[in-house]
Structures are given as structure tokens and as C-alpha cells.
């Protein structure tokens, strides 16, 4: 597969597949979409510095494995009951080649992530729909016949503001 030959439709299909895996809580299959050195990054600040800034998520491959293990295998209070999510993926743009490293394609989409926790809907924090708007950047690489994520960056619209419980996948 040549990265430069990919159509927007192919790329969109990939983003839709990724969204479906998250929304249907197939977390380990989602993890398998990443390259072995793939990273997942949700910055808190506009400058996206990680030397002097803390991020919301700053996962290298081992931390990403830990996140997926935590989410899929270890029940924890802020996901008991769990979040349902629904990703709306739109405004997909393929950045000109040369912007990403090597055989990598940079794809930017706008996403509206709607989240709601199930359980006793009369209780605080459950049954409430929250929405998160974000610009999402994927660095994609071909591996055999498949596309893989080398890096996923989620730039939340409300980064830096008061935000609680982002313990689901964005």
C-alpha cells in the first residue's frame, strides 16, 4: 500500500472503523490499530509542550497498553457504570504529503464525541449526555494491506477548562 495513493474515502473508512471500535467498546481491537510505537496524546495546553506541561493523556506504547488494560480488564469507580460514547466524524482533511515523517499521512478531522454513563439514571453523573468537540489528528502508516495509527492527537475544544472524568476513550 502506498500512502500517497490513498483516497479520502479510504481514510474516512478507517476513521469510521476506529470510531466504531471505541463506541462498541472493543478496546483491545482499537489498541491493535496502533503501530507498535504508536502514541495517544490529548494535550491540556495550546503549545502541546510535554517538557514543562502536563497533558490530559500522554501515552507512549507501554502507557497505552496500560490504559487499554485498565479500561478493558480492571473495573474502576469512574467507569462503574461505564460510559457509552458516540463519535461523529466530519470535516476530514488530508494534509499535504511532506508534513508528516516518512511514509506517514497526516489526517485531521473534526469530531463530536457524545458521552453518557449508564446505570441508575436518577443519580448524579449517570444518564447525562455530555459532548466533547475536538480536532483530531491521526498520523497514519500503511502496514501490509492495513492502515495503522502512529499517533493520535485529540485537541479538545475545552482543554484547560474545568473538565471531569475523561476516563473513556476519546
Amino acid at each position: 500500500m502506498q500512502i500517497l495513493e490513498l483516497s479520502r474515502q479510504t481514510v474516512e473508512d478507517f476513521l469510521f472503523l476506529e470510531a466504531e471500535l471505541i463506541d462498541s467498546q472493543r478496546f483491545e481491537e482499537w489498541h491493535a490499530l496502533f503501530t507498535p510505537d504508536g502514541r495517544y496524546f490529548v494535550p491540556l495546553t495550546d503549545n502541546e509542550d510535554t517538557v514543562h506541561q502536563a497533558a490530559i493523556v500522554n501515552d507512549d506504547p507501554l502507557r497505552l497498553e496500560e490504559r487499554v488494560y485498565h479500561l478493558a480488564r480492571v473495573p474502576f469507580p469512574s467507569q462503574s457504570p461505564r460510559s457509552r460514547t458516540l463519535h461523529l466524524v466530519t470535516n476530514v482533511r488530508i494534509r499535504p504529503s511532506g508534513e508528516g515523517p516518512g511514509n506517514t499521512m497526516t489526517v485531521v478531522s473534526n469530531q463530536l464525541i457524545v458521552e453518557m454513563r449508564v446505570g441508575d439514571f436518577r443519580q448524579v453523573g449517570l444518564g447525562e449526555q455530555r459532548s466533547f468537540a475536538a480536532e483530531v489528528e491521526h498520523q497514519l502508516q500503511p502496514q501490509g494491506d492495513a492502515l495503522k495509527i502512529a499517533m493520535k492527537t485529540v485537541r479538545l475544544l475545552n482543554r484547560g477548562g474545568p473538565v471531569s472524568n475523561l476516563t473513556f476513550l476519546l
Binding site: I56, P77, S78, N165, T167
Partner: peptide, 14 residues
């Protein structure tokens, strides 16, 4: 401690 961390979100849930 972050909103997607493994500690603080569970505390404030409580």
C-alpha cells in the same frame, strides 16, 4: 491526577 488519570477521577466520583 488528570481527568483521564487513574486516581483523581475515582476520588471525585466518590
Amino acid at each position: 491526577y488528570g481527568p483521564a488519570g487513574y486516581g483523581m477521577p475515582d476520588d471525585v466520583e466518590m
